[in-house]
Write a protein that binds this DNA or RNA. Structure first.
Lengths: 348, 348
DNA sequence: CTGAAAGCGCTAACAA
DNA sequence: TTGTTAGCGCTTTCAG
């Protein structure tokens, strides 16, 4: 069916070893011989079988990437960064959407181990689930035993090289941004439970409140699932709870988009009636109305670094590279109105 | 290092053949034997080497996907659809960003051929470039010779199974939508040259004008590169050219976002001063201000269908599955003002 | 139901 | 500089 190396050898009147040498260019071969081989390769449209090669070299030139979903801009940006350096290094990427399902995550890692990937990069965010952590640790060990490795994007309770944004710091700063212009009753639309991202951003929010001598109020913390719909629903729930607040800090920009829609639907204007901030600075955030004040997370850079950790020789230490986040001021925040700021509630 | 099949066999006191049989569950094995093997597998953390398997079976359980860039929502949605059915079928996806570079595209296909992928799905859009077409045809042949196949998303002058949206029809309808409310001078922000998508949408635009007895005016057709920046730049260029127009049809939603920004910057309001329509209906389009009237392309469905074509047995015919597009009316279109509509120009 | 053995296509000693 | 050959880890006849 498909030409193999001995077909090429026969056609070029050389041995398979010689063909292998010109293909890999890792051994001296006489110029005329090389040409004959190259011609045979061309004539036959020969492409070396990567599996046979991988079987011997025990590496595949392939890196596995686990993410939530490519259509989530946050992950898409990370993948873009990963792609960039994969491309430079001549590596292929195997992408797996786990949809935040821990068991699926483990199943994928096993498949990737079977593929003898050079590394697997986990981006989906730690799931605080003991069973999962144990399984993950086991997979990390298995990977290492294969001469591969696990690289983490984000905070995981696992010993492995990692790169993670300063979520808590960013959340702290963006919350203070709200506090500094007089907001006191700031609602937080948190991410799904058990994710390090959720926890870290929540912690930053609480820290900022505390730095202003404020107690976090449970009824002002609502949970979403990092989707537009989740943000929309949570915001409506918040409004309908009749809790008082003058600002909302959404744990990611996508939920902020849902909030914007919900608020508009209820006749509330941002930032006139309610101030709103997000997190991530996904590309669209600048184009929202109003342009969203948020915290920039260097997603592509996280991807790039992760891929570097995945490929670098010798293997990196099991330490986390913390990347700074940055407050991006746009137009979705306004000073709280009037002197009775603390009492201000959304109009109904 | 890593356990292999004979380690498992030894530990379970059986032959490698038996291990293989329980692993693949394609042959009768006595229950107690099977259990011993399964236990050994568990104890050793054994994962079968997919390369060794691929070497024999000549299939890899892997499908290659070529796209422009994951961080482009259009492609991200297609990939999401592809992922869905890949997952159901237990297939792994190898993703390659070609960034619309034809030579990179060919290089990737070669790598994927080496990986013995079960199929490669091309989504990046046809590049009208003879050299490329010849090379692509050659790769398609090579793929077929391997028992693999090429599947196309979009219009290509290549004989292969394909699934493509009705771009021309959608462009026709959305342009008519503008014409019907009195717009006569409609600018078109076309995509990059040599892409079938660009050509088809342009054709639909021209067809709609013709159906109203209008001649397309060259100065109203500007080219962008399907990015926000491209849309922004093109729109500014259009305004500065002092050409007269009351509406803009952007060849994709992302460029429409750039147009929105450019228009706002010049103090032009949509749809009061200028009506705007896009194409694709990417998820964010409903959240723009104003919500964008556009043409919905079933991106995820394209991906799903493409993957089905990639996997189905027996191999599909070399025919294109045309998927309908649908006009989505939102709020970025208004009737042209006054009676002198044809003469209306954007305020300066 | 289980085992022995022949490769799949390639690389990497080892010879020549 | 080139050729010969022994596997890499697995599946799959073919025997038993």
């Amino acid at each position: 069916m498909t030409a193999n190396i001995s077909d090429v050898a026969r056609r070029a009147h050389v041995s398979v070893a010689t063909v292998s040498r010109v293909l890999n260019d890792n051994y001296p071969v006489a110029a005329p011989t090389r040409e004959r081989v190259e011609e045979a390769v061309r004539d036959l449209g020969y492409v070396a079988n990567a599996h046979a090669r991988a079987l011997i070299t025990a590496t595949s030139g392939t890196v596995g990437v686990l993410l939530h979903d490519v259509s989530d801009p946050y992950f898409a940006e990370i993948v873009r960064g990963i792609q960039e350096v994969a491309d430079e290094a001549g590596r292929l990427l195997v992408l797996c959407s786990s949809l935040r399902d821990p068991s699926r995550e483990i199943a994928y890692i096993k498949m990737l181990r079977g593929q003898r990937v050079d590394a697997v990069i986990l981006t989906s965010g730690y799931i605080e689930d003991d069973e999962f952590v144990v399984a993950l640790q086991e997979q990390a060990r298995g990977l290492r035993a294969q001469g591969s490795r696990l690289v983490l994007c984000g905070g995981y309770p696992i010993r492995a090289p990692a790169v993670a944004p300063d979520n808590a710091g960013g959340a702290f700063r963006v919350t203070r941004e709200l506090l500094q212009v007089g907001h006191v009753r700031i609602a937080h639309l948190a991410g799904p439970p058990r994710f390090s991202t959720t926890e870290d951003r929540l912690r930053g929010y609480q820290g900022a409140l505390a730095s202003f001598g404020l107690e976090p109020e449970p009824e002002l913390i609502v949970t979403g699932d990092f989707t537009r719909q989740g943000g929309y629903d949570a915001c409506l729930k918040l409004i309908d709870s009749r809790a008082q607040f003058s600002a909302i800090f959404a744990a990611n920009d996508i939920m902020a988009i849902g909030v914007l829609a919900a608020l508009r639907e209820r006749g509330l204007e941002v930032p006139r009636d309610i101030s709103l901030v997000g997190f991530d600075d996904i590309p669209i955030s600048r184009d929202l109305t109003p342009p969203l004040t948020t915290v920039a997370v260097p997603m592509a850079e996280i991807g790039r670094r992760a891929m570097q950790l995945a490929l670098c020789q010798p293997p990196p230490e099991d330490s986390v590279t913390r990347l700074p986040t940055q407050l991006v001021r746009r137009s979705s925040v306004a000073p709280v109105r009037g002197a009775e700021s603390a009492e201000l509630a959304p109009a109904r």
